[in-house]
């Protein structure tokens, strides 16, 4: 197992290098200089002051030097300071990461809690009424823009019915409440964003759970289990689901970029101060250090997620690590 972990971590290095090259390349697509925002519309800024600013940010260096120094800094997780308010980028991200992680973990829980049972039930009788219904719903789920669903949810449950709050994470005066009402208040605010973000992933995951279960249920050991007279429930959940869930681990790893990316839309629409909204604000303000830090961190989080999923797979299924070691 130890060797397998090491090999997987080493395999991440070329991908990390590509990430840094892509991030750096994107950054240099921009016309003009990032310092323009601070100087362009100020008639009292002299040319000399402008150059001093460019020098301060290292923008007068040749490209490969800038890349090298940038790489050196991000290796130490130093993403510089925001052009917007001069605060260290890591501080800005650190205060928003927990919110996004909270939403994504909750979303993941909802996705697993709904997607897997849906897929398993559909797999029990392929082409049965339940399977056909979920197939239609899955296609709808794939085709609905999540931001539109969010808008409809706000219009119905928020504006028309007044059931759910439509923006933010807390009610206005929540700061002065005790912890329990504050917790339920936050949970209340999270229902719409989490629900909306979950829809697309539920569609995808239930499909994978279905096809994986269909395959498992055709195996010999399932026939054996049935033949020795086990109750169907035990066959499905003990013998079937355990094996059927293995490929789901990989799918979970692969769906991470969507989860992290989906937060941009959900957080922007519901005005939740997480990483996604920070990213959107940075894009609108051309706050390059923040944009680049978030692209890089988003990619690294995804890679770590994939790694965890693969390790979990290898831990659960010895065939993987033995097979690859030979």
């Amino acid at each position: 197992m130890g060797k397998y972990v090491v090999r997987r971590v080493v395999a991440m290095i070329p991908v990390l290098l590509w990430i840094s090259v892509i991030s750096f390349g994107i950054m240099h697509l921009a016309p003009g200089k990032p310092t323009d925002a601070a100087t362009q519309f100020n008639p009292r800024v002299s040319l000399e002051a402008r150059e001093r600013l460019a020098h301060l940010y290292g923008l007068d260096q040749p490209l490969h030097r800038q890349y090298a120094s940038w790489l050196g800094r991000i290796a130490r997780l130093d993403f510089g300071r925001s052009f917007l308010d001069d605060r260290p980028v890591m501080d800005k991200i650190a205060e928003r990461l927990p919110i996004t992680l909270l939403i994504n973990v909750l979303t993941l829980a909802v996705v697993l809690g709904i997607g897997i049972p849906l897929g398993v039930l559909a797999a029990v009788r392929p082409q049965g009424w339940f399977d056909r219904t979920t197939t239609v719903l899955v296609f709808l789920g794939y085709s609905i823009p999540s931001f539109w669903l969010a808008l409809l949810g706000m219009a119905w449950f928020g504006v028309a019915l007044h059931w759910l709050p439509v923006s933010g994470l807390h009610s206005l005066d929540a700061e002065w409440w005790s912890w329990w009402p504050r917790l339920t208040d936050t949970a209340w605010h999270l229902i719409l964003p989490v629900g909306v973000s979950a829809v697309v992933s539920v569609a995808g995951l239930s499909r994978y759970a279905r096809s994986s279960m269909i395959e498992v249920l055709q195996q010999d050991y399932i026939r054996t289990a049935r033949a020795k007279g086990l109750p169907e429930r035990r066959v499905l959940f003990h013998h079937g689901l355990r094996n059927g869930l293995l490929p789901i681990l990989t799918i979970l790893g692969l769906s991470l970029p969507d989860l992290i990316g989906g937060s941009v839309i959900a957080e922007t629409i519901f005005s939740i101060p997480g990483m996604g909204r920070l990213f959107y604000e940075a894009v609108m303000a051309r706050d390059y250090p923040v944009i680049m830090a978030l692209v890089t961190i988003g990619a690294i989080l995804t890679l770590l997620g994939n790694l965890l999923a693969d390790l979990a797979y290898a831990w659960a299924d010895p065939r993987i690590r033995v097979g690859k070691a030979s």
């Binding site: 070329p14 991908v15 590509w18 990430i19 892509i22 991030s23 994107i26 950054m27 697509l29 921009a30 016309p31 970029p257 969507d258 992290i260 990316g261 989906g262 941009v264 839309i265 990213f279 959107y280 940075a282 894009v283 609108m284 051309r286 944009i291 680049m292 978030l294 692209v295 988003g298 990619a299 995804t302 890679l303 994939n306």
Partner: peptide, 23 residues
Amino acid sequence: RLVDTLLSIPTIFLLLAVIAMDP
């Protein structure tokens, strides 16, 4: 490896980052 990398960056991040650069 380039394909793996592009797939590991959330698509919307990549898109918005590129568009933000007004290319």
